[in-house]
Design a protein around this nucleic acid. Structure first.
Lengths: 235, 235
DNA sequence: GATCGGAAGATGGTATACCAACATGCCATC
DNA sequence: GATGGCATGTTGGTATACCATCTTCCGATC
């Protein structure tokens, strides 16, 4: 006799290791801007701050390094990855292609259950637009896209997009907070959802494309303004 | 007086760490099929095999985990990531979109220097098709695409594609070795290069699309055949 | 003889100490 | 004031110890 159990009875023991927790904390600290771009991640300092051993910190940094959130400077150790407009442009371009593809396939594959999920995510997004908390808007946006990608069956693309989003998190926060975006962003999201509900892949794809093109333009302006500011104050 | 020297005198100290070496060795072992899919990567065994300490092995595994080449099974340790057709299909789809975009932008941005690089890569590819060594063909193909991505300025997309290629390396090796591919693959590569040389983005994009669609179809057949075989012998 | 339970080994996870190499900045010396 | 050298800090690398969990197996118990 084996120990096999029906899946429903299976004990879902999630052994969240210290390493995983450390990765999440560090990623959150970087994405929230607490560790700014270029910030040096000194291992023994992080040991004190997170209260875990060096092994854990080092392994977590290796993971974030592969994610692209952290860069290793030879003989200097890890720093928070820097972002210039050229990199950001590339990332927006990749996102555009992957998200447009996901929206199209999502529109094709939409069933009743997915329709309900998307409806819920859209509702939550609308409420988030009224909220003051940028984190709420950020989370609701993420959830909205997650439904689209998962419905489309594009799980790997979703992983990639999430990873890319981590690298432009500061920019994303800025664009989400941008005032024009509050009005036009909501309208564009609505259009994406409508096209998907109408099961019109082409229209969904185009809507995503317009949405992201606009986001990239806003990001470009914001990044250049930020760089100008840094140049003035820095030098 | 500063210590700056002319670049030519600069000591190019590449501080290849043990960890980086370990990552390369492990990746090569996985991609070559020496560590097959699902193979358990037992830390203390790897310590003996690579002759480095456990810390190095563990950090290397973290990196490969983030790359998607290694999966961690809770309380069982790392195994070589498995690949089913659904994942492979997604990967081919992402590659298709990123490579089509790169080929189009490459065609737009082609200058004399890039033209020479591409010509050289194509020449090497043609020679590789005559070679018996699959590794030579694999490397030449990689180089061909690298020129396209770099010329297009799609560095981040190239990173992503390389990483994805790592995850389907066995499949890629199979498709590259496939006999029909020897004839049609060469012709399709030629068509991609011609479209780029003609600076015709749309044609380049379509050529890549056809090429990868065919590759995915071959991969699908091979994977299903392999699975059938495994099912017959395994059960 | 079947089943339960515990011992032993294997493995992953964590913590800590130590050393070498290298960069940086300060300070004494000239 | 410039130079050289030293102290310090940081990283990379290694070894080792300890613990928790899982597997396996063996024996005791029913």
């Amino acid at each position: 006799m084996t120990n096999e159990q029906p899946a429903s009875l299976r004990i879902e023991h999630v052994p969240q290791t210290l390493r995983e927790l450390a990765v999440e904390r560090l990623r959150a600290a970087i994405m929230s801007g607490r560790f700014p771009s270029g910030y040096r991640l000194v291992e023994r300092t992080l040991v004190d701050q997170l209260g875990v051993s060096r092994s854990v910190i080092r392994e977590a940094i290796r993971y974030l390094e592969a994610e692209g959130l952290v860069e290793i400077q030879p003989r200097q150790g890890p720093i928070v990855a820097t972002l210039d407009w050229d990199k950001a442009r590339q990332i927006y371009d990749i996102r555009l292609r992957l998200e447009a593809a996901a929206a199209a396939d999502c529109a094709r594959l939409l069933d009743a259950s997915a329709r309900a999920d998307l409806q819920a995510a859209l509702q939550r997004l609308k409420e988030a637009f009224l909220s003051d908390d940028p984190q709420v808007l950020y989370d609701a946006t993420t959830r909205f896209y997650e439904v689209i990608f998962v419905t489309a069956g594009h799980h790997i693309a979703w992983e990639i997009v999430q990873r890319l989003n981590g690298r432009i998190s500061r920019l994303r926060a800025l664009t989400l907070a941008s005032t024009d975006r509050h009005v036009s962003g909501q309208a564009r999201m609505q259009r994406i959802a409508e096209a998907i509900f109408a099961q019109d892949p082409d229209r969904a794809s185009v809507a995503v494309r317009e949405h992201l093109t606009e986001a990239a333009e806003i990001a470009s302006k914001l990044l250049h303004v930020a760089n100008e500011g840094a140049r003035r104050t820095g030098q």
